[in-house]
Design a binder for these strands. Sequence first.
DNA 1: TTTT
DNA 2: TTTT
Lengths: 153, 153, 153, 153
Amino acid sequence: MINRVVLVGRLTRDPELRYTPSGVAVATFTLAVNRQFNNAQGERDADFINIVAWRQLAELCANYLKKGSQAGLEGRLQTRSYDNKEGKRVFVTEVVADNVQFLSPAGERREGSGSGGGYSNPPAGRRQDDFMNNDPFANDSRTVDISDDDLPF
Amino acid sequence: MINRVVLVGRLTRDPELRYTPSGVAVATFTLAVNRQFNNAQGERDADFINIVAWRQLAELCANYLKKGSQAGLEGRLQTRSYDNKEGKRVFVTEVVADNVQFLSPAGERREGSGSGGGYSNPPAGRRQDDFMNNDPFANDSRTVDISDDDLPF
Amino acid sequence: MINRVVLVGRLTRDPELRYTPSGVAVATFTLAVNRQFNNAQGERDADFINIVAWRQLAELCANYLKKGSQAGLEGRLQTRSYDNKEGKRVFVTEVVADNVQFLSPAGERREGSGSGGGYSNPPAGRRQDDFMNNDPFANDSRTVDISDDDLPF
Amino acid sequence: MINRVVLVGRLTRDPELRYTPSGVAVATFTLAVNRQFNNAQGERDADFINIVAWRQLAELCANYLKKGSQAGLEGRLQTRSYDNKEGKRVFVTEVVADNVQFLSPAGERREGSGSGGGYSNPPAGRRQDDFMNNDPFANDSRTVDISDDDLPF
DNA sequence: TTTT
DNA sequence: TTTT
């Protein structure tokens, strides 16, 4: 039951913000965390870690982070499997964030969109993405009905 | 550069101990970490996290842990990719452990083989497994020559 | 804002359970965490870390942990100061736990008192201890009125 | 034996760099880590955590950090006691850092002194401070001979 | 003031 | 004794 991850790194792309059928916000992005030492070719290596954030934290991330932003982050490791379009079972390991600290100077962050990072309403008429049974990090979006009971917290 | 994971869980199977061509020990195993809450079906869910340990720590794990052992563990998240037998690129996320605490009572652990967990020599004439360019968690073992420079530390 | 601590160790004594004037439960105890290496005298050294838990978690700790119990624990570092009986300002650093995992086999833990660790009511007519403005780890208990706004969460 | 701390915060003052009698570098500083929520008076609270770094890491900290610098940091919690000038035993809890990440833009950091943070030699003829048996965070410097065996790693 |  |  102890399952804790702490990372400091930079976003490899803008966060993607989506909503479950019942309207719960989810943000996904990848954090590049540089390794301490260079590899055999003398290059600075990095690990690329997939992050998921839910609800208000999802919207804060979408509002305040963009490609290149530096962020500190806490969460837990989660493993999931889903069937890809070829019908093959794929296993993924990702970090479900529960605390994100924005480390880039305000000017280097995305604008706060006036909302102060608050809990904005999901856009009406949005497309329903199936990011629970399929991979939220892929862009594979057959519509599937998932209940909110599937949410991790 | 901050990249830290701390887990407490139980091994899903005995650790697998292998050696690089140059004789460096590597142990791999999976840690089941129970989630705090039950899922929609009322079952206790768990995350199944792949662990890699190197050198002396690999041999300690192989000597003192077995299926069902409880362990606490620290390390860093690492992402790798390799090409599977179908020639498809696969991405994996795993934890490279640098500290393992054996939490099962001694009687429930594997016997220490008299070595006190010390740095036993790799068996002469062992098969060379290729677990660096391919997935150490699969049992896919075409022989490949990797140099020790590829080792993470 | 990233402030995270993870520990595995053993209680040096039974947890102490107290209540604020407004009835909020607080448990305090000390966790002995062995160091990896022996000291110059060849003895196994340990660090003795003061832990505070609030509300339901306080009562779970009081119900399920006792002197010698092994526990894993997450929380945040907190610093406080208070004036001791000599009127001198004292600074303390402690861990406010938000997740505790009981690692001792059930037989070695305190009995669960039938409550399943639930949120038992504070005993009526209990003495009001002042553990906020003074040190909860001392047994210094002049009655002081603190509001619940002082609680850390 | 699991004892891990991860913090992100800002230095409250320049690091202090000292040397043991045998020439080992030690840096000490305090990290202010803001709390997530404001206190009852509406002020942003913080925790002030004492940090110790040894050897090369001590010199890196002294070279690259100054008052106000933002830093991420990993380490372990350590408790110590020493006798103050009134002959009273004092207990302290501090973090022994083993990894520090400089998060302030280079311009806001102290200049690297050309050394690239390398392992500079301790200045000859330096004063011997006794920061092991007394509190390294106070400025209490009677000369005491400590052996390097007292060093934590 | 310390646990196994 | 505290940082932005």
